[in-house]
Design a protein around this nucleic acid. Structure first.
Lengths: 155, 155
DNA sequence: TAATTTATTTCGATTGTCAAACTATCTCAA
DNA sequence: TTGAGATAGTTTGACAATCGAAATAAATTA
């Protein structure tokens, strides 16, 4: 019994150590991977803007700003840059001409899919060689984490 | 059999979606948690500097810069700020008077331990209510991910 | 000892971010 | 119908973080 608890502690510590490493490093690894890719003219933050535009269909500028936690003025600047580089399109809504609707260009959709693929590779490697039952356990763990993070946000 | 494969696909997709969410959001959630804490005068990047100093004992400025992927000149600026705020101490090595050795002050160690606790809470919630066997599976998954990230870096 | 290498700092430029002020448009109540 | 506020986005000015290049200082090598 003592031995088993030791094993639990050890597993916990290893998970904790590696998880901290992942959180501290995944950002610059993504950034570095992006720089080495064909799309070397956008940053990871740009990519998150592109993700937010693509995932949430036909969002307005302020909605995207909220998703990625930017102020409206910063959003304007971020979009200016992405429009200039040819990843994003701005168009005024015809219903409400104050609203700017955001969409991806062809180039924008290509880079978005490439980044999606990067994430899918990460997930694929996370559950590499695991049985369906084990994958389901991992799913539960990630879901626990997501729930906890949501709880922190809404506290 | 078809049903089982569908289940695998679904689990994979859910893990992927939630994992992307975690990666995209954990940063600003940590940042927000930090701002609400007693230590509201440092950013998450400052915290990573503090982590690097604490974890890797008696490192020089350039070694810490390498760990957190900053140029030496940016490191100087980052440390200036942390010294001014009372979290970090600079002292010239007596062996080689070119090198700056970095250490945490009492205040620095307190904030470091508080942040460690935050990470341990995350890990604790990741494996909440799981059997030792399931925890071990999660450990394996995280380790797979770390290995893959390491492989990307060294490619 | 002179030349070279190494560790850090200083300097100037660039970029990302924000808050405040501004413009255009919409909504609603008199 | 109209005019006072509300709302969406932009512009502007200031500030922080970051970088690369040059400067400084100390150690090492030839």
């Amino acid at each position: 019994m003592k031995k088993m608890n030791e094993a639990i502690t050890t597993d916990f510590e290893q998970i904790n150590t590696e998880l901290v490493g992942v959180f501290n490093n995944v950002m610059w690894i993504e950034e570095a991977a992006l720089k080495r890719s064909y799309f070397s003219d956008i940053t990871l933050k740009d990519m998150h803007t592109i993700e937010a535009i693509s995932m949430y269909d036909e969002k307005s500028a302020s909605q995207v700003a909220k998703i990625i936690h930017l102020t409206p003025s910063s959003m304007t600047a971020a979009i200016d840059k992405l429009v200039e580089k040819g990843y994003v399109e701005r168009r005024r809504s015809s219903k409400d001409r104050r609203v700017v609707r955001l969409g991806l260009t062809h180039k924008g959709r290509v880079v978005y899919r490439a980044h999606q693929e990067f994430h899918r590779d990460l997930t694929h490697n996370l559950v590499k060689n695991m049985s369906p039952k084990d994958v389901s356990i991992v799913k539960q763990a990630i879901h626990n984490l997501v729930s906890y993070l949501a709880q922190i946000i809404n506290q």
